[in-house]
Computed example of a mutant assay.
Amino acid sequence: MVDKALGNGGRKSDKDLKIRVKSAKGRKVSSTKWLERQLNDPYVARARAEGYRSRAAFKIKEMDEKHKLFHKGTRVVDLGAAPGGWSQVAAKAVGSTDANPLVVGIDYLEMDPIPGVVLFRKDFTEDDAPQLLIDAMGGKKADLVMSDMAWPTTGHRATDHLRIVQLIEIAADFAIDVLAPGGAFVAKVFQGGTEHELLHMLKRHFKTTFHAKPPSSRQDSAEAYLIAKGFKGPDERTNGEEDGEHEER
C-alpha cells in the first residue's frame, strides 16, 4: 500500500506529493525503502513514458551527450545488458536494424528481443562467451564496449568493490582484444580506491581515462562510470606516461 505525504495544513505541493510505502507483512525494511525510492524516482517514470526498459538508459544517454560515445554506424558490444536499456539507446543512436545489426548484447538474465540488437543469454565470465560475441560481429572490430555488469552485492562494501573491479578487468581485457583503433570503453565501478592498477592498465591502451557520474546516477550511491577513449590499437601502445586521466566534474 502507498499513501502521499501532505504538509502545509493539507495543501499539496510538488514536495508534498512524495509517495510513502507502508510496511507489509513479510517485506523487509530494505525492500520497502527500495520500492518507495522507485515510486518517487523521476527517471523511473521517464523510462516508462519513453519506452525504456530501465532508468539506467538515461545514464548512458547522459554520458553520450557529454562524451559523444555513439555515432551513426558505431559497432557496440553491451556486457551485462539486461534488462536492455543501454542496448535500446545504443541501437537507436547508431542506426542499428535487424537487417544490419550493429549492437550485440549479453547477460545471464533473460531479455525480450530488442530491434536491431543481437542478444545472448549467457554469463560473460564463461570461457566461450567472448568468442560468441566476436562471431556475432562477423569478425569485425567494435567501436565501443560498454559494461554495466555487477555481481549481486554482499553488503560488505570493500568486498563488493573488489568483485566489480574483477568484472571490469575481464571486460577491459575483452575490449582491448576487440576494439578498433580510436574505440572507447565504458564500465560501471563503485569508487573505493582499489582500481589504480586497472586505471594504469587502461592508460597504456587508451589516450584518455576518467570517471563520470551522470545526473541520473543516484547521488547517494558510490556508483560511477569509468570511461576510456581513444583506443591506441595493438601497434600504438605506450607505457602510459603521456596519457591523461582525470575526474569528471
Rank of each mutant, 00 (worst) to 15 (best):
114 I>N: 04
157 R>D: 12
66 K>D: 09
127 D>A: 15
87 S>W: 06
34 W>R: 15
186 V>T: 12
160 D>W: 06
82 A>T: 09
55 R>P: 02
247 E>Y: 11
134 I>F: 02
63 M>Y: 06
156 H>L: 13
146 M>A: 10
231 F>Y: 15
193 G>Y: 01
11 R>W: 09
85 G>H: 01
182 G>N: 07
236 E>D: 13
15 K>T: 08
89 V>T: 00
155 G>S: 08
221 S>H: 01
20 R>T: 09
40 N>T: 00
228 A>M: 00
92 K>F: 04
92 K>D: 01
108 Y>M: 12
246 H>C: 03
212 A>N: 10
35 L>A: 05
47 A>I: 02
28 K>D: 15
86 W>H: 07
83 P>K: 04
43 Y>W: 01
206 F>D: 02
62 E>Q: 05
148 D>V: 01
169 E>F: 06
34 W>N: 15
34 W>K: 15
9 G>A: 12
70 F>C: 05
36 E>I: 10
90 A>S: 05
175 A>S: 06
123 D>I: 12
51 G>Y: 05
207 K>R: 13
74 T>A: 00
60 I>L: 13
50 E>G: 05
95 G>R: 07
37 R>T: 03
162 L>N: 11
101 P>A: 04
78 D>F: 04
160 D>G: 00
244 G>C: 04
46 R>V: 06
229 K>N: 02
183 G>S: 06
8 N>H: 14
218 R>T: 12
120 F>T: 06
153 T>S: 13
221 S>R: 05
207 K>C: 14
67 H>K: 02
60 I>G: 11
190 F>L: 06
61 K>A: 12
191 Q>N: 05
43 Y>N: 02
62 E>N: 02
100 N>Y: 12
108 Y>F: 13
57 A>C: 02
46 R>G: 09
234 P>E: 15
103 V>M: 08
225 Y>S: 02
57 A>P: 09
202 L>K: 07
208 T>Y: 07
182 G>S: 08
52 Y>F: 13
62 E>F: 06
26 G>C: 00
185 F>S: 11
23 S>I: 08
201 M>E: 09
53 R>F: 09
121 R>C: 09
225 Y>I: 08
84 G>D: 01
151 W>V: 08
119 L>R: 07
